[in-house]
């Protein structure tokens, strides 16, 4: 594809990538999946499963030893030069005492659109204002980022991704340390972005919320175990394969163990996080628990 892609025209293809670190650790082996424009995809797996390595490969931060990542049919570096990839970091990765304000952070999303001196023009200010408005942070634009609550902090970086106008959004654990109201607001925003034809890739532990907003799921454990539509891929059997013993499993009510990965005849609650997932005996997702067991 040459020239500017039409809005919503950018696809993502991860083609058989293997990533090894200098210490000899093979983080990913032969991982493949692809996403079409207008998709919210959950990237699900335990810590150390290679989720973050997959993110790094898509951002061009690590170079796969084998395979390739194509964004809109182009290599990653070309896509980055065109500002196609936006990224929302995990809260723990940000230095909240850094001397920057909310507006400064959102303006960072525009750097790739500016000249080498990075002096914002009218269009940049406009994009920043619109992004702040869209996440409901306009009234807090002059705050230093450390003065914000957990949910507000998350929204600043979402606004930065919006201001950048990328076609592919990578969100690393966006629901950690966020209250339910903010989580729902973020999910509404992601759904609106999906309608605009963007691809949103969300790495998450939060199994319970995956079926509520992801139309695709990629299960990762040192490779891509399974990828595809949520209702086909996000099953109890697959989740047990992805998580192994790391998942807490509660059966309601107590019953003798039957054949198969899940306990037969009963509703099963799978949880890796504060928001447990409730599944029917056949592995169908029923919903999520809003209260602790």
């Amino acid at each position: 594809m040459h020239g500017l892609a039409p809005t919503g025209g950018t696809s993502l293809a991860v083609e058989g990538i293997s990533v090894a670190y200098p210490n000899g650790h093979l983080a990913l082996r032969d991982a493949s999946f692809s996403l079409e424009p207008g998709t919210i995809c959950g990237l699900v797996g335990i810590n150390g499963s290679g989720k973050s390595t997959l993110f790094k490969a898509i951002m061009g931060l690590v170079r796969p030893a084998r395979g390739q990542v194509r964004i809109g049919g182009q290599p990653v570096q070309a896509a980055l030069k065109r500002n196609l990839v936006a990224y929302v970091p995990q809260a723990e990765e940000v230095d909240w005492s850094f001397p920057v304000g909310v507006r400064d952070v959102v303006m960072m999303g525009r750097y790739g659109h500016m000249n080498i001196l990075r002096i914002p023009r009218a269009a940049d200010h406009k994009a920043v204002d619109a992004a702040l408005d869209r996440v409901g942070m306009s009234n807090l634009a002059e705050r230093q980022i450390g003065e914000l609550s957990g949910g507000q902090r998350k929204r600043v970086f979402l606004a930065r991704a919006l201001a950048q106008g990328g076609q592919l959004l990578l969100l690393d654990e966006p629901f950690t340390g966020v209250d339910v109201t903010t989580e729902e607001a973020i999910i509404d925003l992601l759904k609106a972005l999906r309608l605009e034809g963007k691809i949103i890739l969300v790495s998450t532990h939060n199994l319970g919320s995956v079926p509520t907003f992801c139309d695709q799921v990629v299960l990762v454990n040192r490779t891509v175990l399974a990828a595809g539509p949520t209702e086909r891929i996000f099953t109890g059997e697959n989740l047990l394969r992805a998580f192994g013993g790391a998942l807490r499993q509660h059966s309601l009510p107590e019953a003798p163990r039957a054949h198969g990965p899940l306990e037969a005849g009963h509703v099963v609650v799978l949880s890796d996080d504060e928001r447990p997932l409730v599944m029917a005996p056949d592995g169908r997702v029923l919903g999520r628990l809003t209260q602790d067991l």
Partner: peptide, 22 residues
């Protein structure tokens, strides 16, 4: 004066600098 903003971004959030093509 020329590269200071990129340098600052590399200190605050190096991954965002990558996303901006730096």
């Amino acid at each position: 004066a020329i590269r200071g903003r990129d340098l600052m971004l590399s200190l605050f959030d190096p991954v965002q600098l990558v996303a901006a093509g730096g």
